[in-house]
Design a protein around this nucleic acid. Structure first.
Lengths: 189, 189
DNA sequence: GTGCGATGTTTAATATAATCAACACCATGA
DNA sequence: TCATGGTGTTGATTATATTAAACATCGCAC
């Protein structure tokens, strides 16, 4: 089980400054929208104070952005955008083929996968402790998905979405290959 | 004197208490692991103070849990998991068909879409709406994707991933329908 | 019953966040 | 040159978060 997100303590000040500038706001503009003083924003951006959650929320409301977005947002440079089929790294274990969109995994908020399950393939149960989410769409074939004890067989066009913390299992019950495009956020699998 | 801290997107106090109890910790145990006093945890859980980000981080380190996890974690009941093809809400505008996995966007960290672009369909340029990310895999047909001035034609199996803040455009240059499965995080489009 | 040892709560003292108003700087224009 | 309006920063004051220690309650052992 990989955990790709680097969840080190982010630099609140630098982070806020970057976000503010991303939206083209000055400290005073943001302060006005947020109902705080420009001085406070200056102090926060210099890491000379650690804002209370309530005032950080007020500030982010002026952007606007949620606390969850703020702490989840990752400020990377501009990574590659397009990926040819052959460039998708296969990170599958066993017979299941898992092709990850975008080789460089760090600093992404999602992992997008192109998955192929041969006939009778089975991931087995997984136990996760991470509070992420995952979902996907069946593109071809059929798959039996079990989530928290509940099972269902999904066909082309059907979809799923659940919290990764719930134990889950994928199994191809049929004779044909099954193809799925899925996403996980944060990128754990 | 009253000091009401409500109108937060999440109830920090209740949230922390739930998380703490989920891990079977008492206020004093957690306080010891976190390097703060039990009194502080009591006050936070009663929403009688709004903790500074730094002390909230210290507290969460004792659980252990990241700030991002804390603000992302959803304590609500279990939402639906499986979605039949017909249940995917079409949120498309114009000719492009956008089918959203799981109906409501509320309290989800991602939006997963099953998209269909008829021949010659075109989204037009889009402007920055949110500092999120999006990516996807082409399942059928061909699409011309332009991101930040850079264009490329993607075929079945090819993929893309970029920050939603960069202006982007999808255009179907061919005679066949194009089918894509995509994901956005946070869920905006 | 009495006396733990655990729980969460509260109060007064102290450390720190947040304000307000002034400051220095850098543009652009009269 | 000297305003003028923009930027981010700073010091002194006020508001609030945090501490340390005491309080009340509960369940359990003796």
């Amino acid at each position: 089980m990989f955990n790709i997100i680097n969840t080190m303590s982010i630099d609140i000040g630098v982070h806020l400054k970057a976000v503010r500038q991303m939206f083209g706001l000055s400290q005073r503009e943001l302060a006005k929208r947020a109902g705080v003083t420009n001085g406070l924003i200056s102090l926060i951006e210099q890491n000379r104070v650690s804002p209370s959650v309530s005032s950080l929320k007020k500030v982010l409301d002026g952007i606007p952005m949620t606390l969850a977005d703020f702490f989840t947002l990752d400020l990377a440079g501009r990574p590659p955008v397009f990926f040819a089929r052959e460039e998708l790294a296969d990170i599958g274990t066993g017979s299941v083929e898992l092709r990850l969109v975008g080789g460089g995994l760090a600093k992404r908020s999602m992992a997008i996968l192109h998955e192929r399950y041969p006939a009778h393939a089975d991931t087995g149960e997984e136990v996760l402790t991470h509070p992420g989410e995952e979902g996907g769409v069946v593109v071809a074939g059929r798959i039996e998905l079990t989530v928290g004890g509940e099972s269902r067989i999904l066909s082309r066009g059907d979809a799923y979405y659940f919290k990764s913390s719930i134990p889950h299992r994928f199994r191809n019950p049929g004779r044909e290959e099954c193809e799925i495009v899925s996403a996980s956020s944060p990128p754990t699998f």
